[in-house]
């Protein structure tokens, strides 16, 4: 944690270990990328062929032109963003209440949010399907987003309670004494402070929704079908379209990584030094 470190020290103590971890994280992904630019004939070979016999983007072209993958990506984006909005809009107030108020049933309600997530979804899915059908939400964005909120809300509430609790309550009191209303305090003091927590929670909800398959498979039809379900169409009964699948995987991981590249700055900007001294 030394604040003054030489370039060499940084390289040996930080950058090399980071490279090792990245190698572990990226090796299978790199293999996937490599597969996606190989001609199909290179795929099932013994011994393994590492480099493509010729570089090809035919799988990507096919994916975009001959299947509905581009639309599915868009659907996924709508669903994931919707899940983030619904998740945060409901759980920020809830988590604030859990963190800052003491009221009857507090611990029980907080625990019950966790209990919800303990039932294996595979068993809930059929009753849920029946319910969604009654509400007329099958094959709508709202239906899938609400489906995803079953895991995003409990998670967000719990994570955010931890982050709220990490903010000293003296800050609220100081602001209140200064004459700020509760909502003003939340907006001007608390929210900026828990920004890293908010961003992290949003990322969690986004990624989980982006990758979710079972709810999406059951609740979406052709109209709002997201990528995970579309991807499953490449795995037929008798063939696996490796080229399409790996190209699809690359395209799925890309937006999330770019998104994270953009928001990760927020992960440091949260607690500006000085704020805590207050």
């Amino acid at each position: 944690m030394s604040l003054r470190r030489s370039a060499l020290q940084t390289f040996v103590q930080v950058e090399v270990p980071v490279l090792l971890i990245l190698a572990f994280a990226l090796a299978p992904f790199a293999w996937m990328l490599l597969t996606s630019v190989k001609p199909t004939a290179d795929l099932a070979l013994f011994p393994v062929r590492y480099l493509p016999s010729r570089l090809t983007f035919e799988h990507y072209a096919m994916l975009i032109e001959r299947t509905s993958f581009a639309v599915n990506l868009l659907n996924s984006l709508v669903i994931a963003c919707g899940a983030v909005l619904l998740g945060l809009a409901t759980s920020v107030p809830a988590a604030y209440a859990f963190s800052r108020f003491r009221f009857a049933g507090r611990r029980q309600i907080l625990t019950s949010f966790l209990v919800i997530n303990m039932f294996p979804i595979v068993l809930l899915i059929i009753p849920l399907f029946v319910l969604m059908r009654k509400l007329g939400l099958i094959d709508t964005f709202v239906g899938v987003i609400i489906g995803h909120s079953t895991f995003s809300i409990p998670f967000s509430v719990w994570m955010l309670v931890s982050y709220f609790n990490a903010i000293p309550r003296e800050l609220d009191e100081a602001a209140t004494i200064d004459g700020a209303s509760r909502l003003q305090t939340i907006r001007r003091v608390i929210l900026p402070l828990i920004m890293p927590g908010l961003v992290t929670t949003a990322i969690y909800v986004f990624i989980t929704s982006w990758n979710e398959y079972l709810f999406a498979m059951m609740l979406s039809g052709q109209t709002v079908r997201p990528v995970t379900v579309a991807l499953q169409l490449f795995i037929g009964e008798f063939t696996v379209q490796w080229g399409l699948l790996t190209a699809g995987g690359a395209l799925i991981a890309l937006p999330v990584s770019i998104l994270f590249l953009l928001v990760q700055r927020r992960l440091v900007a949260g607690l500006t030094s000085g704020a805590v001294k207050a």
């Binding site: 899915i125 399907f129 059951m218 499953q232």
Partner: peptide, 15 residues
């Protein structure tokens, strides 16, 4: 989606 048969059948019986 066929999903090894499970998904297709599952979806159908749920429906």
């Amino acid at each position: 989606p066929w999903g090894g048969g499970t998904d297709y059948i599952n979806r159908m019986f749920s429906s």
